[in-house]
């Protein structure tokens, strides 16, 4: 069972209280973008075995969207952080580096 700490209400939330929102840190390609970029934005998702960045909603809770860095293979959670950011904060990156030295995920490392 996955338990994530919501960074908005500060409560540990059980998986059944959360709604999964898929991959985090997507760049939106809207009107005027190339077909390839738009297709990538709509359908191109990473599906790693290991470190992943995801969006979650504190559904049976404060209702806010937040981000989580976790391992899809071991269910280890490296940390959660607020969604008002374009990349994972330093503390999250450091927490991942401590457990998975030399990690990289899309453009982040």
């Amino acid at each position: 069972m996955l338990i994530l700490n919501c960074p908005y209400c500060g409560r540990d939330k059980d998986e059944t209280e959360l709604a999964a929102g898929g991959e985090a840190h997507l760049t939106r390609f809207g009107p005027g973008s190339s077909d390839q970029d738009f297709e990538g934005y709509l359908f191109g998702r990473a599906n790693p075995k290991g470190l992943h960045f995801e969006r979650w909603r504190c559904a049976a809770g404060c209702g806010k969207w937040f981000h989580a860095a976790r391992c899809t293979a071991t269910l280890e959670v490296f940390g959660t952080y607020k969604a008002q950011t374009l990349e994972p904060p330093r503390v999250i990156k450091d927490a991942i580096t401590a457990k998975r030295p030399g990690w990289s995920w899309r453009n982040f490392s």
Partner: peptide
Amino acid sequence: VGSFNRTR
């Protein structure tokens, strides 16, 4: 006592 939590 005094805590409040939204849950299911």
